[in-house]
Design a protein around this nucleic acid. Structure first.
Lengths: 230, 230
DNA sequence: CATTTGTTGTTCTGTTTTTCACAAAAACAT
DNA sequence: ATGTTTTTGTGAAAAACAGAACAACAAATG
C-alpha cells in the first residue's frame, strides 16, 4: 500500500497552511502556485501537483482561493488546535521551546514542563513546572499524547522509557541521542549539533576553489570505460 | 554533474562519526554495520552502502575498524574544529543554543551573540553579547562564516540581509520565515512550529482506527481499472 | 466574437535514494 | 583440513520524489 501523504508532502502542506494564514491576514483572497512555491522554497509545479493530488482545484486563470485552500488543508491536516503538549527537561532548550512564539496562531498549549528540580527554575516561565515524579500521572489524567524531550544526554534514554511507559504517542527529541520510532510511539529527532556540523560542511565545501569530492574515489573509470566502448 | 555526497548521506556520515567517537571512548575497536545502523536509525545495508561508496572497507567477518573509520570520516567531512560561529538574536532560543552542550566534543566555539539590547540580557551567558551595530564589523574582522539566526519573526528578513551583506556564508535559521539559499549563502531552516505540527499529524494519523487517507480522493478507480483490464 | 494571455492540471519521464538478496571472504570450531 | 558461521560488498529491483512539458481552459482584450 503506497501512502499518498508522504513525509515531505505533509511538511509542505503544513507550510502552505501557514503562508495562507499570513496572506489572509494581509487581506489577500487568492494566490498562485508560484507565490506559494516561492514562499516555501519549492517549484510552482510541485505546488500544483500537491494540490492536484489532494484534489484541491484552482481557477484556470485566477489561481487558488485562499479561504477554500485553508479550509481544505485544515480538513486534511486536522485543525491541530487546542492540542496539549508537555516538555520534559526544563533546561535552556526546554524553557526556550516552552515560550516559543512561532506556533501557528496558538495552536498548541504547553500543559506543563517537567524537571528533576522544578524549584531551581526561578526564571519566570508561564507554564507550571512539575517534578518528574508526577510525569506519568499527569500524562494519563490529562491525556497528553505528545511530548518534547529536552533533557541532558545521559538521561535521555531513561526519560524516553518513562514517556513510553506513560503512554506517550509522539516525541520531539532534542537530545543528541537518536531515539527510534516504535509501534506505539513516533519519534522525530532534531539534533542541533549535527545541523551545525552539516551547515559547516556545506559552507566549506561550497567555498573551496576545487571539488571536495575529487578527494573521493575515482569515478573516471566509468568514463574511460564508456569512451572505450565507442 | 551528479553529486556523490548528497545531503542525507552527509548527515549520516556526521552521525556515524559521533557514534564512532563514543564507541572509541568506551574502548571498542571495531564495529559492525548493524551496530551503526541501530545507533543512527537506518538499515545495516545502507551503512555498508555508504561506506562502500566512499571506499571505506571493512573486514569480512570482523566488521569495521573504528580508528580507521574515524580518520577517514574526518578526512572526508573535514575536522570542523575550532570553527567559530555567531548567534544573532539572544532571546530564549539564541541563548539556549549558545550554551548547548551537545556539540561534538567542543568542535565549535560561539564567538559572540548579537542582540538589539545586549544590556537587558542579565542572565549569565558565557559568551560576549554585542549590539547589532557591531555585527558587520565583527563578522569581517573575525572572519566569521556561519551564523545562527534566532530573532523574532518580524525582523528575520532584515537580519538575514544584514548577515548576507556582511559576507556570512551559511545560516542556521530558527525563525519561522523560510529563507532561501543563494549563491553566496547557504540556508538551513529549522522550523520548530512545523516540526511539532508534523509530529501531531503523524500521531493523530497513526492513532485513528481508520485510514486518514480514506477521506482523500479515491484511488480505487485505479484498482477497478486494473481489474477491468484482466 | 475572435484572439491573446496567463495559469492550472496532469502525464510522462528522469533522477536519486533505499532495500533486498546473495555471493564471497574471513574467522572459528571440530 | 574441512565444514560452519558471520559479516561484508554489491548488483539489481523497488520506491520515493521532483521536474519539465504542454494541453486545456478561463479571463482579458480589442
Amino acid at each position: 500500500m503506497k501512502s499518498k501523504l508522504n513525509k515531505e508532502l505533509v511538511i509542505r502542506l503544513l507550510k502552505y497552511r501557514r503562508i495562507l494564514t499570513q496572506l489572509k491576514s494581509l487581506g489577500f483572497e487568492k494566490v498562485f502556485s508560484n507565490n506559494l512555491g516561492d514562499a516555501i522554497g519549492v517549484a510552482p509545479a510541485l505546488v500544483r501537483k500537491d494540490f492536484s493530488l489532494l484534489v484541491l482545484g484552482g481557477n484556470k486563470r485566477g489561481g487558488y482561493n485562499i479561504d477554500y485552500l485553508s479550509e481544505q488543508l485544515n480538513r486534511i491536516l486536522g485543525k491541530s488546535r487546542e492540542q496539549k503538549i508537555i516538555i520534559v527537561g526544563m533546561g535552556k532548550i526546554g524553557s526556550a521551546v516552552a515560550q516559543y512564539k512561532g506556533f501557528h496562531q496558538g495552536d498548541f498549549e504547553v500543559a506543563a514542563g517537567f524537571d528533576i528540580s522544578p524549584e531551581s527554575l526561578l526564571h519566570k516561565i508561564e507554564v507550571p513546572v512539575l517534578p518528574m515524579s508526577q510525569l506519568k500521572d499527569f500524562i494519563q489524567t490529562q491525556q497528553i499524547e505528545v511530548a518534547i524531550l529536552a533533557v541532558p544526554e545521559d538521561v535521555a534514554t531513561d526519560c524516553h522509557r518513562q514517556l513510553k511507559d506513560a503512554g506517550i504517542r509522539g516525541i520531539l527529541n532534542f537530545t543528541p541521542i537518536e531515539l527510534k520510532t516504535t509501534e506505539n510511539c513516533i519519534i522525530h529527532n532534531i539534533n542541533i549539533g549535527v545541523e551545525i556540523e552539516n551547515l559547516f560542511f556545506q559552507v566549506v565545501k561550497s567555498s573551496l576553489p576545487f571539488d571536495v569530492e575529487a578527494a573521493l574515489p575515482d569515478l573516471s573509470d566509468e568514463d574511460a570505460l564508456a569512451d572505450a566502448e565507442t
